[in-house]
Simulated scan of single mutants.
Amino acid sequence: MTMAESAASRAEVLRTRDLVGWAVADPAGATVGTVSDLLIGRDGRVRFLAVKRGLLGSTVLIPVEELDWGEQSMRLNRWLDADVRRLPPYDGDRPLDGEVVAEMERAHPRFYGPPLPFDALENQGTPQIVPLREARGFRLPKDAPNLRGWTVFGEDNERVGVVEDMLVDPHLMKVMYLDVDVADDLFRLRDDRHVVVPMEFVELRERGEDAWVHVLTAREIAALPAYTGGALDPLIEKRVIQAFSRESSSPALPPEHQASLRPRESRVDLPPPPLPERHADESYPDERYPDEPPPLPRRSDADY
């Protein structure tokens, strides 16, 4: 430790340059990056720390409330390294004006939004909605179209982006959402913005390989909370459902216009039906397989 570093570690009031280079770790002790800058609001309060993730990694903003200060190091009090990876990159050349801050809070409510109630701080239970590629045993019908790459349009006929993937509920064996890669000109943050759209509000047009979203315009869809991959965060799902419900006088499209991508059932993927109880003579048809003939009657010893 140099003399300057020793003096900084004993100082009660630190300068910005004293903090640059401090390591930031998560609660498990994994290093997530180093401090590269401090961002101060017009009220004079430190709002964010800019944290550089590795030599070639991006810079992200971490709210100062999420950090515990130590001796020339900081520790996140809740977020893990995997959570920090979900943060949008920070561009130091662009000012954090009110619109950008509002978009951060809207797109990433778990990280930048107002304080959440206790029951929303953590994901509860086993993940239910997952990308199709991660759903074990899930199969689409053979004649179902592959929606990846289809163009997505909003209620105003403006282009939103393209379909990246489908999100499914393996327990219900149903496609629940489209993962939409949003066009860059519809938002201000410099991230690879994805949002999810409920299938019941989507109309598929196979001839043009288009997916038309009802109720919300293109910019309203782009303003939905960001989907950052993996199992769908219940908080994000709740905000998406609220957005469509607020703008819709009816819960969904009429059934004849809804996109239908129900998968085929499989005995391997679904739990087998319970075995029926047999009668003493076992001479009635098997109810599980009504097309099969009834079993042959038992033979007695006298028949041989």
Rank of each mutant, 00 (worst) to 15 (best):
E220V: 00
R42V: 05
M104A: 06
S36K: 10
G44N: 12
T16A: 09
G44C: 12
R299L: 13
E237S: 13
A28I: 05
V32L: 12
Y304L: 13
A102L: 11
R288Y: 04
S283G: 10
V35R: 08
V35K: 05
E292G: 04
R47V: 09
A102D: 15
S249A: 15
W212N: 06
V24M: 06
K174A: 11
H257Y: 13
I241N: 12
R86I: 02
L140Q: 05
N123L: 04
W79K: 06
D43G: 15
Y90S: 04
R239L: 13
T31H: 04
A252C: 12
V160Q: 03
V196Y: 02
L87R: 00
P88G: 04
V84Y: 07
R78P: 04
P198L: 10
A28N: 12
L216S: 00
T151K: 11
E203K: 15
N77R: 07
L39S: 01
S36G: 14
E122D: 10
V101N: 03
T31D: 02
R205D: 09
S73Y: 02
P89A: 03
E287S: 14
P290N: 05
S245D: 11
F153P: 00
P272N: 10
S6M: 11
V100E: 01
P294F: 02
R299T: 07
N77S: 05
D291F: 09
R299I: 03
E66A: 00
R47I: 08
V168M: 05
H194N: 08
E122M: 08
L178M: 11
T126N: 04
V196I: 13
P145H: 03
D233I: 00
A243C: 09
